[in-house]
Amino acid sequence: MSEATSKPENRDPATGRTLPKGIYYRAPKQYQARKQIDGKRVIKTFESAAIAKRWINEKSAEAELGLFRDTSPLDKHTVESLVSRFRDDNMQNRTTDRIGHVPAILRDEIAQTRLSKLNSGDVRKFRDRMLESGLAPSTCVKRLNLLASIIQHAISEWDIPLTQNPASGRIVKRPAGADKKRNRRLNDVNAEKSEYNRLIECMADSVCLDDIWLVKWSIEQACRRGESLSLRWCDIDLDGKTISLARTKNEKHREEHGPEKRPLMPGARRLLIEKLASYEHEPKPTDKIFNVGTEDAFSVRYGRYVKKAGLKDLTFHDLRHEATSRLAKIFTNPLDLCRVTGHRDLKSLDRYYQPILEDLANFAEEQEKILRIAYKEE
């Protein structure tokens, strides 16, 4: 094709008339609009010359008012391309079943929205579709927050020229009821047949011998399930009374936060010493501490024995709540408690701390008696 025939024409074949300045005919239903703004040429193609002319007039007005924003770089990206890139760059160390809510976002129609068109209305529709499908408010919030984090990451790290984050919580309201705390604790801890005793008795009947060790450990140390299952004996320093989680974290986490160590709680330390004594042969440093199989297999067994014990609505993650609330009585400084449990901030810790209200009332009563005695002495 010659250079002369490859250039856009400035005459409309449909009418035979000369096209307005800045508009060129390329092919049927392809009218190219060109506008020079601040020394930069902005180009966009439309289905008709009338729409192209209207676009040029709008850009001219925006330029005069200082409101012009070149969206052509955003036309090249969709929400899907951002989410997929974030998954590939930041979640490469996760298995397919551990990439969270990314697949759900990619399945939704918002994934096909171009960034130049993305606005808060699109995000609100995404939120409403999730709620209408019956998803829990907390799940909707997690997906909205993930989308907001991905967009913010693209703005700050990939130089995506968005002026604001349309998925931000300051712009799109989150569903009500998502922040409801879960307050399940092991009740009647002082009773002979407390929920703790019933749970331990049933877990002792498990076909996997390490199930009961894992349950006891979780109540003593407040580790997450994934952290506990990845621990090996070389990660434990019984003499130094510390746990190293450096190996269990991915490389990016180690670069950002450094090797993570936590203090080993007395009850958890006694538990490990007891477990070591139960071996016929000393385990290798690389051996796993808790050999319970996969997380899914353990979850199935745990649910079965919890039901057998007659315990209602007690998830394995509730044991982390239980441990955190127990340890809070030892560590009165919440920052110290965060170092034990691994919570990143006090807001996250607050969701796990579920004190027994009667204990707080009794403690206040005891402290009041001490103060009254002190006042009388003065």
Rank of each mutant, 00 (worst) to 15 (best):
Y352V: 07
L65C: 01
R198K: 15
F290Q: 02
A4C: 08
W55R: 03
H153C: 07
A268K: 04
I273F: 04
F68S: 01
S2N: 12
F46T: 03
L311E: 05
L115R: 07
D345R: 12
A52F: 04
R124N: 08
C223M: 15
K216P: 02
Y302K: 03
R41N: 07
R174C: 00
D12L: 08
A323F: 04
P283K: 02
L82I: 12
E251Y: 13
R224M: 09
T242D: 00
L118E: 03
Q354L: 03
K35D: 00
E157R: 15
R34G: 01
L82D: 01
D237E: 11
V123A: 07
K307P: 00
T113S: 07
R129V: 02
I151T: 02
E255Q: 14
I110R: 05
V306T: 07
F363E: 14
D287T: 09
A14Q: 13
E132L: 12
K59Y: 06
C140T: 15
E251V: 12
A246L: 05
A148W: 06
D38M: 10
H317G: 02
E368P: 00
I373S: 13
P334V: 04
R247S: 08
L186N: 01
S244R: 09
T315H: 15
P103V: 04
P137T: 10
F316G: 02
P175V: 06
H153Q: 11
S48G: 11
A309L: 05
E47A: 15
C338V: 01
I212Y: 02
R198W: 03
N187S: 13
K35A: 03
R351N: 10
D179G: 15
R170W: 08
Q367D: 10
V300N: 06
F290L: 05
Q354P: 00
I37Y: 09
I160Y: 06
M203I: 06
K21V: 06
E157P: 06
K261M: 10
L337H: 01
I23C: 04
T341S: 07
P166R: 11
E280Q: 13
L146N: 04
R127Q: 11
R98H: 11
L146C: 04
Q152F: 00
